[in-house]
Amino acid sequence: MENIVKLGLNPAWLLAQLANFLLLFLILRAVAFKPILNMLDTRKKKIQESLEYAEKVKRDAEAQQKEFERKLDETRRQNQAAVAAAGQVAEKEGEAILAQARAESRKLVEQAKEQIEYERRQMQAQLREEVVRLSLAASQKVLSQQIDEKAHRQLVNDFLAQTDQLGNRN
């Protein structure tokens, strides 16, 4: 026992060291260990959650990408169809316009022809009238009033009718 005391063993100092340790233990546990362990756990959980979230976001993004591509394809196809349809419609319309234009021009030509015919007829009629008058005048002079005018006119008309018939026959 004496030897232990010589080593410096002293109940007061021992108690002081025990009290020191207890104090330090309590303070460190309150100040450091509990908050840090909580923090470590929180961080662990947070990291895990973040990783899971990132994974989810990645999956979502991939799904969205696929969805987007699908929609893009669909739109492209729709566009193509629309363009094709539009082309067909335009072609049809163009044809219709063309046809209308043709018909119109034909009608115009026809009208013009009719006009010409009409004018020609009129001209013919006038010409006949003129021929009748001229031949009347000429024959009056030649015949010197041997026949009256009424009979004469009848004569010429008959003659013209004959020539008409001849002309038509030709």
Binding site: N10, L18, N20
Partner: peptide, 11 residues
Amino acid sequence: DINFPLSLALI
């Protein structure tokens, strides 16, 4: 100081 290691050992 032997009191310090002894206190830790006791604890």
